[in-house]
Design a protein around this nucleic acid. Structure first.
Lengths: 246, 246
DNA sequence: GTTGAGAACTTGTCTGAACAAGTTGGCCCC
DNA sequence: GGGGCCAACTTGTTCAGACAAGTTCTCAAC
């Protein structure tokens, strides 16, 4: 948090949060903000661009910016880490590894993780819960180069993301999430304490490093009575896409 | 498409699409691009910022930008309009209104559409299909001020979005989508030609104008064997958030 | 060969200025 | 009171330059 424009974006976010600028009200003009913070207009524009991308404020040429919402979307870190998300809500995350083994990468694994087929990759089946109640079943495949760091982690570690960062400095930078619905199978039903054929929200995701190298891919199934996902988007900024089944 | 930086962003997108820059390769330096297009570095930065937000290229201070993916995400217009999306895939969109009536706004409607409870709002139940096969059931509520423009539209109009734009100049600028899974009810099953209790992907969305005024909200149910959603995000740009059921 | 220091390169941040394009509010006239 | 026009205001776009901070490559020393 060195950059001045990030500091200003943060101050504006907080001001909106504590309703100094209420929803529907107009933000000061760029020149006023620039004078107030003692920076140039370009720097202010970088700050407000961030808030616009988050959907906190709307903007039209010629008119003052308008505050659209107060609660801001989660950070990528919070989305990535189940434990961090739970903590932010004041809930306790639990986790338990059910099975863990090396298998040769299938063709699908190879494509998703950019490896050669047959490379041994680490499969982990993990149940995650909030305050003890199971809500998520994770079937994760880790790339060969990170597997050695994942393998020794104890089965009930609440935050794998945190552990990998502490141990290896690994940070997740990009994610691609494909979302659909499936009926719970026998194993799903058992581990999530729901009836068979209950609808589950399935999120298949690939996470990569800053350089774009895939680290892991996962088939996550959420109890749809416990968890949902929300996406905010706009004309300028659209991360959501509809897809047909292949 | 007047702005130079948008033109440049588009040219770069196309160049990546036709694999002039292949995935994994490095983009020319900002100064080179600036010289090539005859603009300043600031303008180039605006262009590449757009591609970075879309997840097409990755970027680290000090190192040249890297091409991460080739297929670009859909525009907001394509997400908003079922018909436009279908056309982009070379499929034909069909639509049929099953029921349409005015009802007084419930408390929930009032909150979502920013109206007073009791205001008459237009409810529309619509089935959408691809090449004749039903894939989506839309239960939409339109705000009172747009209802008069929606009401006279013929029941089998393939693109309501297009009609509203042509007739009233209305453009949708922001969207909030909440995604979860539900079991098909009797009506859902009937209209979508699936068995009862099949898993459906539910997308509850609110769409607003450029000024942040809500236009409509909708409960969309997709056949999960036909359609899924994908979200691309990053540390800089995260539109996706996990939520607990209230 | 390996290592380490350093130079060259590249992206990130910020400034100050200018003009274009769109919105808003007030004033005058009818 | 209503309508229309204009001036003031505000955001969008672009430029040229400067320095900071991180990466990559080269080359000399060991």
């Amino acid at each position: 948090m060195a950059a001045r424009h990030e500091e200003i974006a943060d101050e504006l976010r907080r001001a909106i949060d504590r309703e100094e600028y209420t929803v529907g009200s107009r933000l000061p003009a760029e020149t006023d903000l620039a004078a107030h913070y003692g920076v140039s207009r370009g720097t202010v524009r970088q700050a407000v661009a961030a808030l616009t991308a988050e959907g906190l404020i709307g903007s039209r040429q010629g008119a003052r910016r308008v505050v659209l919402a107060s609660r801001r979307s989660q950070s990528f870190a919070e989305l990535r880490s189940f434990a961090q998300w739970a903590r932010a809500m004041g809930r306790e995350a639990t986790g338990q590894v059910i099975a863990q083994e090396y298998r040769p990468a299938t063709a699908e694994d190879a494509v998703r993780l950019q490896l050669r087929a047959g490379t041994p990759v680490l499969h982990v089946l993990r149940v995650r819960g909030l305050d003890g109640e199971p809500v998520l079943l994770e079937r994760t495949v880790y790339a060969d180069w990170i597997s050695p760091a994942v393998e020794p982690i104890e089965p009930d570690c609440p935050s794998v993301t945190q552990r990998l960062y502490d141990d290896t400095g690994l940070v997740f930078a990009y994610g691609e999430h494909v979302i659909d619905a499936v009926a719970a199978g026998a194993q799903d039903a058992d581990l999530l304490s729901v009836r068979r054929t209950s609808p589950l929200l399935r999120v298949r995701r690939v996470t990569t490093t800053r350089e774009g190298r895939p680290v892991e891919w996962s088939d996550d199934r959420y109890r749809s009575d416990a968890v949902s996902f929300s996406v905010h988007n706009s004309m300028d900024n659209n991360a959501l896409a509809r897809k047909t089944a292949e």
